[in-house]
């Protein structure tokens, strides 16, 4: 490997360095690079700061523990996003089942119908003058399969190809879910 400092390594070089030589500094740099993007992704999905912190911690611990399963064929970012995404969805389902936040009922197109959370009051949110909060509430209202796509594409700014790798879905499905997610978001925000 080249003699450049670790901080100049690419993500893939760092994870390989950590995998082969157990260089703890390489892992620490990866934590520094990815903690904020992952935190944003998980927070936008769950909408709970504390829970989000737990999921992000667990993601890095999984990376550390399963570094040997990383194969240097894909981007490190897609690998870590896949881990975070799986953990987030598991956590979200736990909350949903424990709080009875919504009921799932498969319709003709296999989509989830969710009962609106009573805390979602666009009029009240508008009064507070916080667009961010308004969008966050609306995001939490749309079904998880669309929410994930919208967050990855429109908030995190990932490419379609990266999203297909993260989710393991065909590109056509990814694109249609993004569009449907946007439509749902637009409907929710229309009356504002």
């Amino acid at each position: 490997m080249s003699l450049k400092p670790l901080s100049e390594y690419t993500d893939e070089e760092l994870i390989i360095e950590f995998k082969l030589n157990r260089t703890e500094a390489a892992f620490q740099i990866l934590v520094k690079r990815f903690k904020s993007p992952l935190f944003n992704f998980v927070y936008r999905f769950l909408g709970d700061y504390e829970l989000c912190s737990d999921v992000v911690q667990e993601t890095f611990i999984r990376v550390f523990r399963n570094v040997d399963s990383y194969k240097n064929i894909g981007k490190f970012s897609t690998w870590i996003y896949t881990i975070a995404s799986n953990l987030t969805k598991t956590e979200y389902r736990k909350i949903r089942s424990s709080k009875n936040f919504s009921i799932s009922n498969f319709g003709q197109e296999g989509e989830d119908y969710e009962i609106s959370d009573s805390t979602y009051r666009p009029d009240k949110i508008v009064e507070s003058g916080q667009t961010g909060e308004l969008i966050q509430k609306a995001l939490l209202e749309i079904p998880e399969q669309y929410r994930e796509m919208v967050i990855l594409r429109d908030i995190q700014g990932l490419a379609y190809e990266e999203i297909t790798e993260i989710t393991g879905l065909p590109i056509g499905t990814v694109k249609s879910r993004i569009n449907r997610g946007r439509e749902k978001l637009q409907k929710l925000l229309k009356n504002v």
């Binding site: 935190f39 927070y43 936008r44 700061y49 989000c52 667009t131 969008i135 429109d154 946007r182 637009q186």
Partner: peptide, 12 residues
């Protein structure tokens, strides 16, 4: 909406 999503404040 897309602009607003992109402009969303980063949660640190």
């Amino acid at each position: 909406i897309l602009k607003a999503l992109a402009k969303l404040e980063k949660v640190e």
